[in-house]
Amino acid sequence: MLLRAIDLHKSYRTDDAVLNVLQGVDLTVDAGETVALTGESGSGKSTLLHILGALDTPDSGAVTLDGLDVTGTNDRGRADIRCRLTGMVFQQYNLVPSLNVMDNLRLQARLAGRDDPGWNNALIARLGLTGQERKYPEQLSGGQQQRVAIGRALAPRPRLLLADEPTGNLDAETSDAVMSLMLALVDEVGAAFLMVTHSSRMAAMLGRRLQLSAGRIA
């Protein structure tokens, strides 16, 4: 078992109420497994993904990743987990606007100390970005930017790839292409894949589907 979450709780306080987003989530993901996390808007999918990816902390509960205690460690420990064990693909791409395609793609690998020029070039080719290496994000289409973001997440060969609506800004045709590419690369790297999505079609492309409802895995 690669990832395990036990009894996760998370709530947000607004001006006039307390919003209980996660109310005892338990889940496990095995190495190399692909999992879709679905649920209605506001059901807490992204919150859960951020906690599993060591970007946020729960109010209570525990997460272990590759045997490491994600929730019990400090900011530096969580940063180390993000850097070495996980790759993250956001809906908004979140590329660094002042870096070109190749530098964006290498960024996490360099931070993790795993910069591999051969693998980087292979990723560029597999992602269909050959000839675009010197371009800046603003010069790319949305689909291209998302492919750079996927390359960046997979460049350090993470154990777990997390994706938050990665095709949410793309048309159906591009979405399918990006999805197929991601699954192929995940398989090649040997990483587990956990993806938040609204789309049943996308969810169906993955090995397992989890439904988040009323703050719990249904």
Binding site: A79, R82, M88, N94, V96, S98, Q108
Partner: peptide
């Protein structure tokens, strides 16, 4: 701000 978020998301600690 976006760059800082990305760097943090990619594994840079706040201290670093």
């Amino acid at each position: 701000r976006g760059v800082f978020r990305t760097l943090r998301a990619l594994g840079t600690s706040s201290r670093r």
